[in-house]
């Protein structure tokens, strides 16, 4: 059997892309959600949340922070689970 047809390999690849695509979609939704608000609903971002502050500020900073958090989630998952599976498959075929 070819290596790329090994069930473990196929499963690992499928899970890797699934995680990657889910996180990519999350980033796209967060970022383009923000851009669409700027494009079509500026008054919402100017909603007041206390003296001299708008909801746009925490949302904007939140988008910046979310980008970093998402890279953290992927790194955590990959270090904790993905690398082990890759190493198991490598050991098996060695």
């Amino acid at each position: 059997m070819k290596l790329q047809e090994l069930p473990e390999f196929k499963k690992m690849v499928r899970l890797k892309w699934r995680i990657s695509i889910i996180l990519t979609l999350l980033m796209l939704v967060i970022y383009f959600g923000f851009i669409l608000l700027i494009a079509f609903n500026k008054p919402f971002l100017a909603t007041s949340i206390g003296r001299n502050l708008t909801i746009g500020l925490p949302i904007g900073i939140g988008v910046l922070v979310s980008a970093w958090v998402l890279t953290g989630i992927y790194t955590f998952w990959a270090n904790r689970y993905h690398d082990n599976r890759v190493n198991e498959i490598k050991k098996k075929i060695a």
Binding site: T24, Y31, F34, Y74
Partner: peptide, 13 residues
């Protein structure tokens, strides 16, 4: 924000 959000995609894909 636009300059930062490409980095996660770079990592995931």
């Amino acid at each position: 924000i636009g300059f930062l959000v490409g980095w996660p995609l770079l990592m995931f894909l």
